[in-house]
Design a protein around this nucleic acid. Structure first.
Lengths: 155, 155
DNA sequence: GTCTCAAGTCAACATGGTTGACATGAGGTG
DNA sequence: CACCTCATGTCAACCATGTTGACTTGAGAC
């Protein structure tokens, strides 16, 4: 785990805007950072990091997910999944067991501790979102989601 | 440069939502991906990547920036800056010269080629934003910026 | 000449990815 | 039983991006 001087010199730089949409680009960058900053701090204290959280997040929302599905959902290789997943199993934040029908697959689930950590980390992120939404009202929140959906589905 | 199978299995996974704001968390994640996807593809073809683009982006908007300021703006160590910066100098996308008053500092500027590449990469990102904003109108765009500002300034 | 300070460089390390190759373990089929 | 398939697990090599720490270089200032 890197030391993560964390937000040390990370006040949004005020750069000259060459184009209309430069502000939007920068907001996306700092928005992502802003949302994940506290969660990452918390995870670091737990000896975990973003990939671990991603695993916990997915498993929390799809209990008994097989490893292959998890790999596909996360969009990384099984080798890349291997280390963080094993750490989570060793730490008993996750359990794996063979399926009764599909004995080939291993099914993953959160333990109580894993649930707690996933929830705390995600809570940090949700809090940031909630505070932001509170400032702009429901209509603003709806508009934000519409924009983000358009961007996300940009393929 | 990693091969970047790029969006291979990266259609937004549809996970069960445990909380109200889970959708927002996922939108932030996929939004960031969506905005940077095409730019990253382009950069990869140029043998560059995100850190190089970040450098070009900042220097484009702050010509004659000193290396120390650049380090501060980017929020990384000088050692981390070193490699991508040297690549950009070797490729002549950037020039550096000593300041006339502040002979200690080196000032960075984009070359014509550097400008072209910075612009093309940023154009990809701006296009994604423009398309999204077009779909939701000015009011939606303004609301999006307000939310993102609230998130970004969340310190 | 010496001090300061920006910049440059080198080594060691951590992390999060990638491919490729191969091993293991469980079911299904001949 | 022997064999094939398929999910999983593991090993090695590699790359990119970052970190600290330690040291050098080069220019100005005193």
């Amino acid at each position: 785990m890197p030391k993560m001087s964390q937000a040390a010199g990370l006040h949004r730089a005020s750069l000259k805007k060459l184009h209309d949409l430069d502000a939007a680009l920068e907001l996306m960058y700092y928005g992502w950072r802003g949302m994940t900053l506290e969660a990452d701090d918390y995870l670091t204290k737990q000896g975990l990091s973003r990939p671990h959280h991603r695993i916990l997040y997915v498993v929390a929302r799809q209990p008994d997910i097989a490893i292959g599905s998890l790999i596909e959902t996360l969009g990384i290789s099984k080798q890349a999944l291997n280390r963080p997943l094993n750490l989570l199993l060793e730490r008993k934040l996750l359990t794996s067991k063979r399926s009764s029908e599909q004995h080939r697959s291993k099914l993953l689930r959160l333990t109580a501790t894993g649930q707690r950590i996933e929830q705390t980390a995600s809570d940090h992120e949700r809090k940031v979102m909630r505070d932001a939404f509170d400032r702009v009202g429901t209509r603003g929140a709806v508009a934000w989601m519409a924009v983000m959906e358009a961007i996300a589905d940009n393929n």
